[in-house]
């Protein structure tokens, strides 16, 4: 039995009076890919966005319950949220590179974290872009504005930017929903490689994607965790009738 990266018990989350997660119990295992699937509005995005506390930016958001990251309650008062977010990287639904050059998108992150030696930054920029399988496409145009890249390249740049600071966990919030099939395949391939070194959580509304990339799958419905298990089992012999209805496409 691997040690879980996240141990979550009775997690609830709400926006104002609207409760969107109604008691979630789940363990997310290290060095594996966990897919969160479910229809729109089931709380899967809220769930993943709570894991690095990026939802704190939304006014009125509130989360409760035990949300332990490596044994530490991330919602307790003495957690350094800035450091937490450095350790738990996130890639968003819509690629969001900064309106700067490709190079500066990564260099910015490094400078924020105190790197100031030119050669070192150059080196990490290259290494991160290689890891994100983007280096060969952009190595001659590092000074180009990142917003001129294609959607898929932008998304890989965002992944590279996240990898640059060597997080321990990668959260992907529907990373391919704005991408074409070829870019999607590249990102999925990348997730496959990254699994060796990172714990990965991916929210997706694309069930084929969940089946392709993940080791474990969790099916959310209306703020509750309906079923959680090995992806293979979830997709071949789901226990709950609702899970089966969803993965066979009868709703959602």
């Amino acid at each position: 039995m691997q040690n879980p990266t996240f141990e979550i018990k009775a997690m609830r989350a709400s926006y104002g009076a609207k409760e969107v997660l109604k008691g979630i119990d789940i363990n997310i295992l290290s060095n594996s890919v966990t897919a969160i699937i479910g229809p729109s509005g089931c709380g899967k995005s809220t769930f993943i966005r709570s894991l690095n506390r990026i939802n704190d930016l939304i006014p009125n958001f509130h989360a409760s319950g035990d949300i332990l990251y490596r044994g530490e309650d991330i919602y307790s008062g003495d957690v350094d949220v800035v450091d937490l977010r450095r350790r738990i990287g996130m890639v968003f639904q819509k690629p969001n590179p900064f309106p700067k050059s490709i190079y500066d998108n990564i260099a910015y992150v490094l400078r924020v974290h105190g790197f100031d030696m030119r050669e070192m930054i150059d080196e990490i920029v290259e290494k991160s872009l290689r890891k994100a399988a983007l280096w060969d496409e952009v190595k001659d145009n590092l000074k180009q504005n990142a917003l001129t890249l294609s959607g898929g390249q932008q998304q890989r740049l965002c992944i590279a930017r996240t990898l640059a600071i060597e997080p321990e966990v990668l959260l992907f919030d529907e990373p391919c929903s704005a991408l074409d099939p070829i870019s999607t395949a590249k990102v999925e391939e990348l997730i496959h490689q990254l699994k060796q070194n990172y714990t990965i959580v991916i929210v997706t509304h694309n069930m084929q994607q969940a089946a392709r990339v993940s080791d474990h799958s969790a099916f959310f419905l209306m703020g509750e965790l309906i079923e959680f298990g090995k992806t293979q089992d979830i997709f071949t012999k789901p226990v709950d009738a609702r899970t089966e209805a969803y993965i066979t496409g009868r709703f959602g």
């Binding site: 977010r85 996130m90 968003f92 969001n96 309106p99």
Partner: peptide
């Protein structure tokens, strides 16, 4: 755009670093 801010925060930038650099 709000996602610039989210992006910077998710990378572990502090509020001021986000304001100043992004």
């Amino acid at each position: 755009p709000k996602n610039y801010k989210e992006g910077a925060f998710a990378l572990g930038a502090t509020h001021w670093q986000t304001i100043y650099r992004v």
